[in-house]
C-alpha cells in the first residue's frame, strides 16, 4: 500500500487529468459529476502498490494545464509514470457509484442463488449432449 498523502494540489491535477482521459458521454458521467471523486482518488492511492516516490514523480510530471495533446505527449514521453496515473484515475472513476450504476453493477454484492436456479438451468437440457456421449475417462482397471 502506498503511504503517500495527496495534497489538494495533487487532487486538482489528477482530477484535471481524469477529465481529459475519461470524459463524460451521453451514457457515462464526467468526473466532475462524481461528488466524491477526490475521496476516491485518495482511496485508490492508499490501496495501490506503487511506491510513494514513483507516484510523487508521476504526479509532478502532469502538465499544469493538461489537455488532450498534453496528456498524449506525457503518455509517450513517460509511459511508465503515465500508466501509474492512468490506473489511479481509472480506479477512482470505476469505484464511483454513479459509474457502477450505469454499468449495472448492483450496490448489494450479495446474490444468493434461489434453490431452484441450477435445477431450472438443468431442465433446459443444456447438459444432455454431454451425458449422451457417455463416459470419456480412461479406466485404468481395464488398461
Amino acid at each position: 500500500m502506498s503511504d503517500m498523502t495527496l495534497a489538494p494540489a495533487d487532487i486538482a491535477l489528477l482530477t484535471r487529468l481524469a477529465d481529459v482521459l475519461i470524459p463524460g458521454t451521453a451514457d457515462m458521467p464526467a468526473v466532475g459529476e462524481i461528488a466524491d471523486y477526490a475521496d476516491l482518488l485518495r482511496r485508490a492511492v492508499a490501496a495501490c502498490g506503487y511506491a510513494a516516490a514513483d507516484l510523487r514523480a508521476a504526479i509532478d510530471m502532469i502538465p499544469a494545464e493538461v489537455d488532450w495533446e498534453g496528456a498524449k505527449a506525457f503518455s509517450e514521453a513517460r509511459p511508465g509514470s503515465f500508466r501509474i496515473l492512468g490506473v489511479i484515475v481509472s480506479a477512482a472513476y470505476y469505484m464511483a457509484r454513479p459509474v457502477l450504476d450505469r454499468l449495472k453493477f448492483p450496490d448489494d454484492r450479495r446474490h444468493p442463488a434461489a434453490d431452484d436456479e441450477f435445477a431450472n438451468e438443468y431442465m433446459t437440457g443444456i447438459l444432455d449432449p454431454v451425458t449422451e456421449r457417455g463416459p470419456v475417462y480412461r479406466d485404468t482397471r481395464q488398461a
Partner: peptide, 14 residues
Amino acid sequence: NRPEYELLLQQKWS
C-alpha cells in the same frame, strides 16, 4: 469486500 480490492492485490494482498 472493498471497492478498491483490485488495487489492494497489487501489493498488500498480492
